[in-house]
């Protein structure tokens, strides 16, 4: 019976249905999250939501202007650390044939992607917050920058390796130095892919909360100073979400809507950039 062909076909059919079910099961939370974020966040959205500062506890209204600016500044800081760092390590791995050391660096880079971001936050806390004597935007930017490095490194390495050897040889045969070859020929050819990697890394750190808890810390007021605590969108969402005030909870959903939109747009644009020339 168990080995009869009709039964085997039935089993095959059943497993196929189960697989389809798995896909549906994964999509339910995604659509639920997107729907609820939109439905509950939309009422909070208004021009003042983007342009006003948070109101003191107990008062309704107010906005997330400081958190938006803070997140912008933190992303800028993080990128100015993570992008050059990752680019250079990626170039080293892809272009300088580093042998044993390369394997170690590559492996460690992969392992680093798995380090919980809250641990990175603790590290930066004891490295910068303790030594500088307080929470600061700078510390937050450094924490996010460290988180960006492995992603940027890996996409740089992969994309550089996809550039055909014939281009490198053409450039070297023209009498270009290796440095000129890398900077003028190989890197430009790999740029769309690397850009995608960078945008995905930015999308990831834009939503990071845990590493900011004790570095950037959050700020209810307008501040763009590097040596002061700074507000950030995800921090604001967290604070508002666990607060007992209905108005703040609505604002948490509103801020989540903004954050999710930002992150999704970054993700979609990143993929468009990469697929633009058919790769």
């Amino acid at each position: 019976m168990l080995h009869s062909y009709p039964f085997r076909k039935l089993l095959n059919r059943a497993v196929t249905v189960l697989m389809l079910l798995a896909v549906v099961l994964a999509l339910i939370p995604l659509f639920s999250i997107l729907w609820h974020t939109f439905e509950r966040g939309w009422p909070a959205i208004s021009p003042t939501f983007f342009t006003h500062l948070p109101k003191p506890v107990g008062e309704t209204g107010g906005g997330i202007a400081n958190a938006l600016a803070g997140t912008g500044l933190l992303i800028l800081l993080a990128s100015s650390i993570g992008v050059p760092f990752g680019l250079l390590v990626g170039i080293y791995l892809a272009e300088f044939n580093p042998g044993g050391l390369g394997t170690v660096v590559r492996f460690l880079n992969d392992v680093l992607t798995g380090i919980p971001s809250i641990v990175t936050g603790m590290f930066v806390y004891s490295l910068l917050v303790l030594t500088m004597g307080g929470f600061s935007a700078l510390a937050g930017g450094v924490a996010l920058g460290l988180i960006m490095i492995p992603t940027v490194t890996r996409s740089t390495e992969e994309m550089l390796k996809m550039v055909p050897t014939s281009l490198r040889e053409a450039s070297l045969a023209l009498g270009a130095t290796k440095t000129q070859t890398i900077l003028r020929v190989v890197l430009p050819a790999a740029i769309p892919g690397i850009l995608t990697g960078i945008m995905l890394a930015v999308a990831r750190v834009a939503g990071e909360t845990a590493p900011l808890l004790f570095t950037a810390f959050g700020n209810r007021f307008w501040s763009l100073r590097l040596d002061q605590p700074i507000a950030a969108l995800p921090l604001q969402i967290f604070t508002y979400a666990i607060s007992p005030y209905r108005d703040w909870q609505t604002q948490a959903w509103g801020a989540a809507l903004v954050l999710v939109t930002l992150v999704l747009v970054l993700n979609i644009v990143a993929r468009l950039v990469f697929h633009r020339d058919g790769r």
Binding site: S166, A170, A173, A176, A189
Partner: peptide, 15 residues
């Protein structure tokens, strides 16, 4: 290499 030019098997213009 600046004094010896080379043309390769497959055309490889810089894209």
């Amino acid at each position: 290499r600046r004094r010896i030019g080379m043309v390769f098997q497959k055309p490889n213009p810089f894209p």
